[in-house]
């Protein structure tokens, strides 16, 4: 059994503004693998490079070194045309359900877009659209509506349906629940887990929220300043972290229990004072 996605020593530096100015490296040699049907949670703070890594996999950012292999095919630097067939197997769910759906298109148009782009007739795509809506738990009359008529959680369901339209093998999920309310968040995560069980899709799940990662990931990779500092099964990384940064991350996240949080706070302060 080979990995679905293999990233090897990936490096990325955004082009500077002028001709000579060089910006710092955003990805500094990232290597990781995702197996079929697996969720890899990618955790990190803002500026750690986790979103850039996701965009590089999707072809929305250009790596300056290393390689990305998807189903045995090198997809590190493909032209937009070469990348087109890949849409069937590799999809995305973005963080912001408000800007990731074009406000002037109906839901049916949004959902059929990737299908029609693959050369499927409009009539066939219509059938798929109602199946997709059903799959994400939206009623079929949602198809003739516009994104603005839906709540954040419902929009995110539409975004999930769009990602599922071509039955991909890997979905890059970039903070898909962090813009959602607490109760909606749990339901969307459950939906993602259900879909994975039914279809065997893999997720590269990018988030800053450790509790979300625990909920959805099989394995976790922790990013810090463009590097992976720790990778492992979710239970190990979130209970017995090896790297100091992971430990401070875990201690910093406040837990939703006043007494446990008091202990955690005390522990964090002790560690900080010991370090200082």
């Amino acid at each position: 059994m080979t990995a679905l996605l293999t990233i090897d020593d990936l490096r990325l530096r955004y082009p500077g503004r002028g001709f000579r100015s060089a910006s710092p490296e955003v990805l500094r040699g990232i290597s990781l693998e995702i197996a079929p049907g697996e969720t890899l949670g990618l955790v990190g703070e803002s500026g750690s490079g986790k979103t850039t890594l996701g965009r590089a996999v999707l072809g929305l950012a250009n790596p300056t070194g290393g390689s990305i292999t998807f189903q045995g095919e090198d997809i590190t630097r493909l032209s937009q045309k070469q990348r087109r067939p890949l849409a069937k197997r590799l999809q995305v769910i973005f963080q912001d359900p408000y800007t990731s759906l074009n406000p002037v298109l109906q839901i049916s148009e949004i959902l059929s877009e990737p299908i029609v782009a693959q050369g499927v007739s409009a009539a066939d795509s219509r059938k798929t659209v109602s199946r997709l809506l059903d799959q994400v738990g939206l009623p079929s009359n949602a198809a003739q509506r516009y994104p603005r008529e839906f709540s954040g959680g419902q929009r995110q369901r539409v975004a999930i349906a769009r990602a599922l339209a071509l039955e991909p093998r890997l979905i890059v999920c970039d903070e898909p629940v962090s813009a959602l309310d607490l109760s909606t968040q749990a339901r969307v995560l459950d939906l993602l887990v259900d879909i994975q069980r039914n279809t065997g899709v893999s997720y590269l799940f990018i988030t800053h929220d450790l509790s979300v990662v625990r909920h959805i990931s099989h394995r976790v990779a922790v990013m810090y300043k463009g590097e992976l500092v720790e990778t492992g099964p979710v239970a190990e990384v979130t209970t017995t972290p090896q790297h100091e940064y992971t430990r401070s991350l875990l201690l910093s996240a406040p837990t939703a229990d006043p007494d446990l949080q008091r202990e955690r706070r005390a522990l964090r302060r002790r560690l900080r004072e010991a370090a200082a």
Binding site: A35, P36, G37, E38, S183, V193, R197, S211, V212, H215
Partner: peptide, 24 residues
């Protein structure tokens, strides 16, 4: 009650194995 129940519990982590391990 519903809100408190929606808080993602810290003590439960995803335990169902990824399907590839079964396949293996």
């Amino acid at each position: 009650q519903q809100l408190i129940a929606s808080i993602l519990d810290e003590n439960t982590v995803r335990t169902d194995p990824a399907p590839h391990s079964d396949m293996r």
